[in-house]
């Protein structure tokens, strides 16, 4: 009996071992954590700036991550734990979102998942998130195109949440009703992205240049100073939590 109890207790203490697989909380929220390095650098910089602008204008915090593997964790556990441990979103509003995809779990076994805090559950119920993953991410992820998968899903959220970049055209709006062939859309996205602000500089210098701009707060149109956010300011982790909401697929 005592043995049984101790086994049960061990199972209950399991979360401690789960924590080990969760990436450490970064000191500073840079919105995109391309740990697997599969998102093209220019797009990554655009995503970072747009995510920052989105937080500034709507308060919603979207963090994107690519990672080799999430180990034995279920995608929802990984997503929920990262949101909780990092504190993505506002402490009271719980308006954080984590979009992540794995790269090295083998074909058909990779996970793509969107986890949301409770504050976003109303606007984005799991059923909707699942179909958004199907529509905006899966067509690209199946071809190993993480860049466009993240660019597309983020653009959609950005549009829907009413992100305001103070006039700067940060992300290309994607029109669902268009019957354009996907190849054409990809082509346009690529053209658009290569023409976007960070286009200058050689391929080697690009990343660094973009970083510098980002660090220097290159996007300081000043349109979002007095937002109703309580603490931390932009780029901080607000202490948001999640109760396990979200949806995803395997690819």
């Amino acid at each position: 009996m005592r043995f049984l109890v101790s086994i049960i207790v061990c199972m209950l203490v399991m979360p401690l071992t789960i924590m080990a697989a969760i990436p450490e909380k970064p000191a500073y929220n840079s919105y995109v954590y391309d740990k697997a390095n599969v998102i093209s650098d220019d797009v990554e910089q655009n995503l970072i700036r747009a995510a920052k602008a989105l937080e500034g204008s709507t308060g919603n915090v979207i963090v994107m991550m690519t990672i080799d593997t999430i180990g034995d964790l279920a995608p929802y556990e990984f997503g929920t734990e990262v949101i909780r441990k990092w504190g993505i979103g506002d402490e009271k509003l719980n308006n954080g979102m984590l979009i992540f995809a794995t790269t090295d779990q083998g074909p058909g076994k990779n996970d793509v998942w969107i986890s949301v805090g409770e504050g976003l559950e109303g606007d984005y119920p799991d059923g909707l998130l699942g179909s958004m993953v199907d529509t905006y991410m899966m067509p690209y992820l199946e071809n190993g195109d993480y860049t466009n998968a993240f660019a597309n899903i983020f653009s959609t959220f950005y549009e829907e949440m009413g992100g305001d970049a103070g006039g700067a055209d940060l992300v290309k709006p994607i029109n669902e009703d268009d019957d354009w062939p996907i190849a054409l859309i990809i082509f346009i996205v690529i053209i658009y992205l290569s023409l976007s602000k960070f286009g200058g500089g050689g391929p080697g210098g690009r990343r660094r240049a973009a970083r510098r701009i980002y660090r220097a707060g290159g996007f300081s149109t000043g349109g979002f100073g007095g937002g109703g956010r309580s603490s931390g300011g932009f780029g901080g982790f607000g202490g948001g939590s999640s109760s396990g909401g979200g949806a995803g697929r395997r690819f």
Binding site: S131, D134, G244, G246
Partner: peptide, 17 residues
């Protein structure tokens, strides 16, 4: 598909709760 996503989400939330 949507219902199943909702159901899966509910199971996940239940596990977390």
């Amino acid at each position: 598909t949507r219902l199943m996503d909702e159901l899966a989400g509910t199971e996940n939330r239940l596990a977390v709760a």
